[in-house]
Write a protein that binds this DNA or RNA. Structure first.
Lengths: 217, 217
DNA sequence: TCATGTGAACATATTCACAGCT
DNA sequence: AGCTGTGAATATGTTCACATGA
């Protein structure tokens, strides 16, 4: 189900190109997946295609939006307005998809009142009041790692049950709370791992199984 | 293998807490995974544990670092110095793990020379020269979606074979080039999906299979 | 005739449970 | 006695290939 947003984006760009209808093959190519996988994914939502024809782009786009829950409004709070929090607050991809940033919070009171992306930074202690006032269900953590678990705990007691965590630390949460972690450094590490493999192959090394330090025996 | 960075982070925090040795159970808890999975993952790298005892934290940390390729230096270029590129340039999690940002590039020439995170922004056209000069193998794309494919193509022809893409668009690359995509808005959408499910369950709705529009029959 | 939707085959990933080593 | 490393069992995900229906 993590692929639905990708399909949605592909459908949006087809719509921009004024494509009205498409086959699973076309949409799969645009989304960068195999067409059988796309059809199986879509068949879980219902039968929104027409055999022999394909999918109606606009109709399918609406159905996927509805399935994801984008037909409703999602108020979001962002905690930790450093460089990353700043970037997230300004990120247009959130607001354009039904996510509405209702507050920016920072533990550093000297920053309270500072204007970022059209919103005034508020004190972290206002969290609970803001969550209740706006019915916030999703919280974004962009603090340093050391603060993240505490911020998370307070989000959970304020009633937030979905958390997007950019701090490089594992968060512990009660059952019923979802956390998604985005670790920028892990992504680079995974690339480095593959890059290293490619470099080894190219330099003609045999795939290394032994460490080279065992020798004798 | 996407979990190795997580294990590495867990080992680093154990080291900070001056823990010398740990069991698979402890490390798995710290990393937020099942202990059997952790042991199986580690066994792919080699036998770095001691039966009846556990793992030496420092030794295992080194072995994982080496496996990922963090014992070598990885020069990185970041293209697109908007809010996100700015945040990435300042992100300490990169530099602290062997990744060295050697250049910040932006297509907007009016920004050339501007100082960000201690580096001067340079013109995008310098890409190839920079890649060759520093032996850059990893490129980060933080441009708007519309520019991403073109930036990607030029990275590839400059010799970059690993790309971290923050632009919300699917990139097409030749064989042998790795792309990892980080889509901030997709992450929120996935949370919204689960949140919607939780709300439905709580309000006592039966899981909806039919659309409600078929009626008669 | 054509492309969807889907069972069946295949592949990959996770978990269990215990043999083997310290 | 205790914890790793791993085969076997299970679960999940992907791809194939074709019956089905517009």
């Amino acid at each position: 189900m993590a692929r639905l947003p990708v399909y949605l984006r592909a459908l949006n760009s087809l719509l921009e190109a004024e494509v009205r209808s498409c086959s699973s093959e076309e949409l799969a190519t645009a989304a960068g997946v195999n067409s059988a996988k796309l059809r199986k994914d879509l068949s879980h939502l219902g039968s929104y295609g027409t055999r022999g024809v394909g999918y109606d782009v606009e109709y399918l786009r609406y159905q996927i939006s509805r399935e994801i829950g984008l037909t409703q409004d999602w108020p979001v709070v962002i905690v930790g307005i450093g460089n990353l929090g700043h970037a997230l607050a300004n990120y247009s991809g959130f607001s354009s998809r039904g996510f509405r940033t209702v507050a920016l919070l920072d533990a550093d009171d000297s920053r309270t009142g500072e204007l970022v992306a059209g919103l005034k930074i508020r004190a972290f202690r206002e969290l609970t009041a803001i969550v209740h006032e706006h019915g916030v269900a999703i919280g974004v953590i962009a603090t340093p790692a050391a603060a993240a678990q505490s911020v998370c705990d307070q989000m959970v007691s304020a009633g937030i049950r979905s958390i997007l965590n950019f701090a490089p630390t594992v968060l512990t949460v009660p059952d019923g709370v979802d956390v998604r972690m985005v670790d920028l450094s892990s992504e680079l590490q995974i690339l480095a791992y593959h890059e290293q493999r490619k470099a080894q192959l190219q330099s003609g090394d045999a795939p290394v199984v032994a460490t080279g330090s065992e020798g004798v025996a």
